[in-house]
């Protein structure tokens, strides 16, 4: 096998990203969809850190990854609050049944 380099990390991140998208598209439970979103964000973060390590940009990539983590935390909090609200409203969190936007 090749010496482990930038490409390896990027491939891992690409696969992780696709798995995240798969989770988002297939799961019915809103919390599971959130897990998918976290996977996607992690994939993006791996890219940032990998480029920061291999492409001579300094630590800017790591800084961005840090900010993404913060944003993910804020996003998770808000999203779960919304999910709780939806649960109160519909007594379930299966997002394929919540399609009132259509009407």
């Amino acid at each position: 096998m090749l010496q482990v380099g930038l490409t390896h990390f990027l491939v891992v991140s690409a696969i992780l990203f696709s798995l995240g998208v798969y989770g988002i598209v297939t799961r019915k439970n809103a919390v599971m969809v959130l897990m998918g979103i976290e996977l996607v964000l992690n994939a993006a973060n791996i890219n940032f850190v990998a480029f920061s390590r291999f492409s001579g940009f300094g630590l800017g990539g790591q800084m961005t990854a840090l900010f993404v983590i913060v944003l993910a935390a804020a996003e998770a909090a808000i999203a779960l609050a919304i999910v709780l609200n939806i649960y109160k409203q519909f007594t379930n969190v299966n997002i394929d049944e919540i399609d009132h936007l259509k009407d």
């Binding site: 998208v21 598209v25 297939t26 969809v33 997002i95 394929d96 399609d99 009132h100 936007l101 259509k102």
Partner: peptide
Amino acid sequence: LQTGKVQTYVAFVV
């Protein structure tokens, strides 16, 4: 196509 389901929209984006 306008299903009102978020996941369908995600699939379109992908």
